[in-house]
Design a protein around this nucleic acid. Structure first.
Lengths: 392, 392
DNA sequence: CCCTATAAGTTCAATGGCTGAACAAACAAG
DNA sequence: CTTGTTTGTTCAGCCATTGAACTTATAGGG
C-alpha cells in the first residue's frame, strides 16, 4: 500500500518541476533539480506522457555542447479545470489548462437577489455547458469544476451568503449543471479561491489576500498552500474588530472592519449616492482629487491597516495583496495602510510589510476556482491517472 | 536517494503510532492502524529497538482469545531532550524522555536584568551540566537542547528580549554550556515553545495559545504543527490593536493588547502596588471579591476577547488555551473573553470557541523546549539513528 | 488433558520501484 | 572525420514492501 505511494509521490514531484519551471526543462534537468536519477525521471515522464499530462517539445537546438535535451511541457491538450463564480450581479465561467492559461472565459450579468438559487444553478449550468463544449473543441477534457461563492461554505452546502440572500443552499449535483455530468464538483469561498488564484499568478509563497467588494473577504496562503483553518472558514478579516465601541455591524458585533472599509461605508463617508457605480465614482473622485473621497479612502486605508497589522503580527507574513475593488483604489489606500503597518507591526522596522495590488483583478476568484481543479491534479497526478484509466 | 526515504518515512510513521497510542500497541495493532503489513511493521520495529528508540514490554496476558501481542513502548532509556528557560527572574532546566515524561527539573532564581547575558549563560551552563549528569544517571542520553527566551529570535540570535533588557544576543555555543558539548543547541521564543508543550500535553490538534506574563506572548498550533510564520515570528498577539486611539505602547504603536491585558496594565487598573507579588495579589483580591480587582480582570478579559476574536475569525481555530498568569486567573477572565468571542466571532453561533486553561501552567515553555528536541527525533528517527551510529 | 479456534509474530519468495553503469544518440569544436 | 560532451535509454542489481505460509501462544470446550 505504500510501495506504490513512492511512485505517486515522484510522479507529483516531476510534474511539479515541469509546471513550476520558467523554461521547459529536459529530463536531465528535472533529474538534477529533483535529486532523482535520469533513469527514474525517464520512466516517470513516460508515464506522464502516456497519461496525457505532459508532452515533449520538438527537439529544439539549444545553446551549448552535447546532445540537446527535449523540453517537457505541461500538456496543452489534456485535463482542464472549470471555474465558476456566483456573485451578486453576475455569473462567470472559465477554463484553465494545466499550464494555468485561461482557455475560455464567459461572464453573464444576472442579479441573484432577484432569483432563486435553483434559477441561478440553471443559468450557471448553461454557461458550464458552453464552457465544456468550447474546451472540448480545443482538445481539452474537463476534469472537474469548482464554484466560487461569496459566503461561508461547509462541506457541500453554502451556510450563508449574505449578499446573495442565500442560506443553507446545497451544492447542485453535477448532472444538474449539464456538461459536468460525472465530474467532481465543489463549492468554496470566493475570497479563499481568489487567494489561490493570486498564489499562482504571482508566485508568492506566503501572503494575506484581502478583497474589498460589498463585503470584505480574505484568504491566507502559507508556504504555497492555501490555509483553510479547522473548517475552511479562515480568512474572515472583514469582521475583525477595529474599535470595540464602533458602529453596529450586521453580523451582530460592533466596530468590524467592514463598517470602516466596506464599499457601503466608504461610499457613505465620501458622500456619494448609492447605486451600481460606486466603485467608478470613487475612483473618478479620487483621481480628480475630490477631498471627501480622498478622506474617505484615507479612513478606510487606516482601518485596513489596523486590521492587517493585527493579522501580520499574528501570522508573520511579509506580503499583503489587495484585491477586488481595493486593487483599483490601491494608490489612495496604500499610504494609510503602510503607515499603520509600519507603526503597528512589531517586526516592521527590520522587515517592512509589502503591499501590492492583485495581479488578476476581478477575475481572481474565477481563475482561482478553475486552478483549484488543475492544482488537485498537479498535487496528485496518480489519482487522476487512475480515474482516467478506470473510465476507459 | 528516495528508496531509503520510504523506509525513513515508515520508521517515523511507526514510531508516531507508538508514542501517540494511549496504550502500548502490539505490532499487529500498529500494522492495522498504519496500513502497513505485519511483516513490514516487524522489521521496522526491530530497527527501532536496535536503535534504542522503543522497547518491548514483558508479554503481558491481555483479554481475548489468541496469542497475546507484546506491547511496544517508547524507550524509557534512550535519547532525552533538554529544555532550558531564561526568564526575567529565574533560570530553569528540564529533561524529557521520548514518552514526554519529565525526568528532571530544576529552577534557579536569578534576575537577568542585573546580569550580563554571558553571566546568564554561565549559570545556565551549570544547570545544564547537572541535568546532563542526572539524566545520564537514569540511563538516558542527552540528544540536544533548546533554550526558551521571552523575545524575538532570528536564527541563532536573540533580536530583542525587552523584559530581559537584551538585544542582539547570540546563542551560546554548546561547549559553553558544559555538558552539551557536541549536541545540537537551539533558541526559540518562549510562548511558541509553550504552545508546543501544550500541544503534547493536551493532545489538541489546532489551537491558539496566549500567555500572559509581564508581556503577552502567543503561539499558534495548526493541525498538530507549530506555525512559525515566514521567519518564526508568528503569534505576536500582544501587539494586536484593541483601540487605534488607545494608550501608547512601548513598541511604538498605540492601543496594543498589552496596554489592556498585560500584567502592569491589570495591576494599575486594579489599584494594586507594583512589586513581585502582583499575580498573587490579583488572585487573592479576585477570590475575595474585591471590586476593583474584579473590574480590572473584566476589562482585561474584554480586551483579550476582542483580540482573540480577530485571531479566530482569521484562522478559524476552535480552541483557545490561556497560559502564564492567565491560567491562574481564568475563572475571572473567562466570562468576558467568552462574551466577546460569542459576539465577535462570525462562526461562533454554529460552533462556539472553547476557552481552557493551560495544562502545564508555568512549566509550559520549559517542557515545550525539551519536547522540541524529542519531537525532532520522533519526526525523523532515521536521521537520529544515522547520527547515533555515525558517532559509534 | 487434548483439540480447535483465534490472533501475533516471523520467514521467505515475489514484486515494484529506484539506482548505477554502460551504451547509443545528437551535437559542437577542432 | 574525430573527439568530447551531454541527453536519454537499457538492464542487471538492490532495497523495501507484500502476501502467504508457518510457528507460537492463548482461550474455550469437550
Amino acid at each position: 500500500m505504500r510501495q506504490r505511494s513512492l511512485r505517486d509521490h515522484n510522479l507529483a514531484l516531476v510534474l511539479r518541476h515541469v509546471t513550476a519551471a520558467n523554461r521547459p526543462p529536459s529530463r536531465a534537468e528535472i533529474a538534477a533539480a529533483s535529486g532523482l536519477t535520469r533513469a527514474t525521471v525517464s520512466t516517470i515522464v513516460d508515464e506522464l506522457i502516456a497519461g496525457g499530462l505532459v508532452a515533449e517539445l520538438e527537439p529544439v537546438s539549444r545553446s551549448g555542447v552535447g546532445r540537446p535535451g527535449t523540453g517537457i511541457v505541461p500538456a496543452g491538450t489534456g485535463p482542464a479545470g472549470l471555474g465558476m463564480e456566483v456573485n451578486v450581479d453576475y455569473l462567470a465561467v472559465c477554463a484553465v489548462d494545466l499550464t494555468g492559461a485561461v482557455r475560455h472565459r464567459q461572464v453573464r450579468h444576472l442579479d441573484q437577489r432577484e432569483h432563486s438559487p435553483a434559477q441561478t444553478w440553471q443559468a450557471l449550468g448553461e454557461l458550464a455547458d458552453q464552457a465544456v463544449a468550447a474546451v472540448a473543441a480545443r482538445g481539452l477534457t474537463p476534469a472537474g469544476g469548482v464554484i466560487a461563492v461569496p459566503g461561508l461554505v461547509e462541506g457541500d452546502t453554502i451556510r450563508i451568503a449574505p449578499n446573495l440572500g442565500w442560506q443553507q443552499v446545497a451544492l447542485p449535483r453535477p448532472e444538474d449543471l449539464g456538461g459536468l455530468r460525472g465530474l467532481p464538483l465543489d463549492v468554496a469561498n470566493e475570497a479563499t479561491l481568489a487567494a489561490l488564484g493570486e498564489r499562482h499568478a504571482t508566485g508568492l509563497r506566503s501572503f494575506l489576500y484581502v478583497s474589498g467588494e460589498i463585503g470584505i473577504g480574505g484568504g491566507i496562503v502559507l508556504d504555497g498552500e492555501l490555509f483553510g483553518g479547522s473548517r475552511g472558514w479562515a480568512g474572515e478579516i472583514g469582521h475583525v474588530t477595529i474599535d470595540p465601541q464602533g458602529p453596529d455591524c450586521h453580523c451582530g458585533s460592533r466596530g468590524c472592519l467592514e463598517q470602516y472599509a466596506g464599499e457601503e461605508a466608504i461610499r457613505a463617508a465620501a458622500g456619494l449616492p448609492a447605486g451600481a457605480t460606486v466603485l467608478a465614482d470613487l475612483a473618478a473622485g479620487a483621481a480628480r482629487g475630490h477631498a471627501p473621497v480622498l478622506d474617505a479612502l484615507e479612513q478606510a486605508g487606516t482601518a485596513l491597516g489596523v486590521a492587517l497589522s493585527g493579522a501580520v503580527n499574528l501570522l508573520d507574513i511579509a506580503t499583503v495583496v489587495l484585491g477586488g475593488h481595493y486593487a483599483e483604489l490601491i494608490d489612495w489606500l496604500r499610504p494609510a495602510i503602510e503607515r499603520e503597518l509600519t507603526r503597528r507591526v512589531i517586526t516592521a522596522r527590520w522587515s517592512p510589510v509589502k503591499v501590492r495590488a492583485s495581479a488578476l483583478g476581478a477575475d481572481a476568484a474565477l481563475v482561482g476556482a478553475a486552478r483549484a481543479v488543475t492544482q488537485a491534479i498537479l498535487d496528485d497526478p496518480a489519482r487522476f491517472l487512475a480515474t482516467r484509466t478506470a473510465a476507459e
